[in-house]
Design a protein around this nucleic acid. Structure first.
Lengths: 303, 303
DNA sequence: AAACATTCATACCTTTACTGGATTGTTAAG
DNA sequence: CTTAACAATCCAGTAAAGGTATGAATGTTT
C-alpha cells in the first residue's frame, strides 16, 4: 500500500506540474521527491505522470488518483483534529443515567447548563433506576449518574447534587382527612395520614423511597395502610388524582402534577425534619478517562 | 501526521483488544506493535487505549479514532483499486469528438458497441467540427475523434471508419427537374441538377462537403447555382422540404430525413463513382496514455 | 501462600528506507 | 552548437521499523 507522504508528494507534483517547485513546497529536495513518485507509481503499478525533461502532465490514472488522494489527506487531517478535540474534552459524548424523577428536575437543569458551556459534546440519555446506574458506572456504560444515595460500588464516587424533601399529595377537596383538613399548602403532621389508604413506592424499583416513607411513618407513629404499589411518581399522582388515596412525593415533582391534586408540606416537628431528606446525587467512575466527563465535573464543581 | 501502518495497527488492536493477538494478525511480533501504538498516541497527543497488563480498552479518543481509521484505510484500498482499474482500461473516461453527421450514424453505433464491451468506462461527448477535433486531439482535450479526412496534425493518426456517398435530396414530387424526373430511388445523373437552385454547405464549418460537392458538379460539367448556405445536414434538408432547392447529403442522413424529401443515388458513370466518397475517420493521438482509449482502439480493430 | 501464566513495556541490535548533495542525461531554446 | 532547464541516478549518512530477549505487573492455580 502507498504511504501518506507519497500521496502528499503526488498532490504537490500534480498541482505544480513541476518536480522542483513541488519539492520546494514540500520542504525537500527534488531527487527524493522523484523517487517517492516512482515508488508510488511502482506500488500502483502504473504511470501517474507523463513526464519529459520539459513538461509534466497527469495520466488518466493520475487524474483518477488526484481527487481521491486529496480526500484521503483531508480526512486524515480532520481525523487528527477530531481525536485531539475529543481528548481535550472539547468534543465527545457523555452517557448520562438518571432516575425518572431526576429526568424531570435535575437532568434538564444540568443539560441546559452543560450544553451552553460545552458545545460539541453530545449527551446520550438513559433513564435507569439507581442500582442499574451504579452497575453502568462500574462497567463504563454510564459516564454520569443522577441517582439516589444508595451503596456505592468500588470505584464509583458521588457528591450531593440536589436536596429535596417529600411532601404529601392528596386528592383536591378530599374528605379523606375528615375534620383534620388543612388549607392548601399548610403543613400537615404525618399523624393525620394514619391508616389512610396509602399509595406506595414499589419495594424493588424504588426501594429508596419505599424505605424512606416507612421510616417517616414509623417516626410519626402512624400506621401505613398500603393499598397500591407503583414505581413511578406520575403513576402515583394519577392514583391520587383519581381519589384512591394519599402518597408522598418529592417536592420537585409538584411542578408536573396533574390538576386535582393538592400538596402539603410535612409538619417538621418531633425530628421528622431530619429524616425527611430526599437527596439526589451525582455519581461517576473515579477512573473515567473520558475528557468530556472530566470537564463536566469541573464545570459542576466551580460555579 | 500519523502513518497508515499505524492506523492499521491501531484498528487491529482495537478489534482484538489484545496486543499479542493483534500482532499475529499483522504478521509481526508484539513489541514493535506496542511501539507503533505508542508512536501513534504521541503524535495524536493522547492515550488511545487504557491498558494494564491484564486488559486493553479503548478510551474516548480511541473510540473516536476507530471508525475514522477504518474509513481512511477503506478509502485507501478503494483508491488503489480504482487507480489500477483506470490504468488497465477497465474503468475510466473517454472524450469523443464527433461531427454533427457522425453523431447520427457512426457515434451511436460505436457507443452501443463500446458500452457493451467496456462497462465502467464513461464517455464524454463533444460535438465539434473536424478541425476543432483535430486541435483537441493534439492538446489532449479529445481522446477519440470521429471526423472527416482532413489534413492530420503531427502525432494524430486515423483510420477509415465508415465509407459513405452523397445522394441527391429533392422536394418530393417536385417539378424542379422538369421532364427529367426519375422515380423515387432511381439513380440520377448530376447533370440533371445543372443550374437548379442548390442548397450548399458553408465554406467554413463544412468545407469538406463544400469542396466535395463542387468537385462532383465540376466533374459532371454541371453548373452549381448556389442559392443558400447552411452547415448542418438537417438544416439543408429542411430547406429541401420547403421546396427551396436541391442538395447532396450523405446517404446515412437519409435515415433521419423529414417527410416530403425524396432521395436519389447519383449516377456513377463518367468517373463520378470514384469522386463520390464521403469518408468518416476515427482519429486519435498516437501517444495517448489513456488505457481506456487503447482498449477501445483494440476493440474497434479486432472484431 | 507461593509458584506459574499471561500480557504489555523496555532494551538492544539488525535491517531497511528515506534524505540530501553531487552528478548525469536529455530536451528545448538561443 | 552551446546553454539552460529539469528529471533521473548514484552515493553516503541518518532515521525508522522490525526482531529477540527480558522485565514488570497482575491474575490464576496448586
Amino acid at each position: 500500500m502507498f504511504s501518506l507522504p507519497q500521496l502528499e508528494a503526488f498532490v504537490a507534483v500534480a498541482e505544480e506540474l513541476h518536480f522542483g517547485a513541488a519539492a520546494v513546497r514540500l520542504n525537500m529536495t527534488q531527487p527524493p521527491l522523484s523517487r517517492q513518485i516512482q515508488m508510488l507509481e511502482k506500488k500502483l503499478g502504473t504511470q501517474l505522470f507523463g513526464r519529459t525533461s520539459r513538461k509534466v502532465e497527469l495520466t488518466a490514472a493520475g487524474a483518477t488518483l488526484l481527487p481521491r488522494a486529496r480526500q484521503i489527506l483531508d480526512m486524515c487531517i480532520k481525523t487528527d483534529l477530531d481525536v485531539r478535540r475529543v481528548s481535550s474534552g472539547e468534543a465527545g459524548a457523555i452517557t448520562v443515567g438518571y432516575t425518572a424523577i431526576a429526568g424531570q428536575s435535575a437532568l434538564p437543569l444540568m443539560l441546559r447548563h452543560a450544553a451552553e458551556s460545552m458545545p460539541g459534546v453530545s449527551f446520550v440519555l438513559r433513564e435507569l433506576v439507581s442500582t442499574d446506574q451504579m452497575d453502568g458506572l462500574v462497567k463504563g456504560s454510564v459516564d454520569i449518574g443522577l441517582l439516589r444515595p444508595i451503596v456505592a460500588r468500588p470505584g464509583v464516587v458521588s457528591r450531593p447534587l440536589m436536596k429535596d424533601r417529600l411532601v404529601v399529595a392528596l386528592p383536591e377537596g378530599s374528605s379523606l382527612l375528615g375534620n383534620m383538613a388543612a388549607p392548601q399548602g399548610a403543613p400537615l403532621p404525618l399523624g393525620s395520614l394514619d391508616r389512610l389508604p396509602l399509595l406506595m413506592y414499589s419495594t424493588k424499583e424504588a426501594r429508596y423511597f419505599h424505605d424512606l416513607v416507612l421510616r417517616l411513618f414509623a417516626s410519626a407513629g402512624a400506621h401505613a395502610n398500603i393499598t397500591q404499589y407503583a414505581s413511578q411518581v406520575p403513576a402515583l399522582l394519577a392514583f391520587v388524582q383519581a381519589g384512591l388515596g394519599v402518597t408522598l412525593v418529592p417536592a420537585s415533582a409538584m411542578a408536573f402534577a396533574p390538576a386535582g391534586v393538592e400538596f402539603h408540606e410535612i409538619d417538621g416537628r418531633h425530628g421528622i425534619q431530619e429524616l425527611n431528606r430526599v437527596d439526589l446525587e451525582l455519581a461517576w467512575n473515579e477512573e473515567t478517562a473520558n475528557p468530556a466527563v472530566l470537564r463536566l465535573l469541573d464545570l459542576i464543581e466551580s460555579p
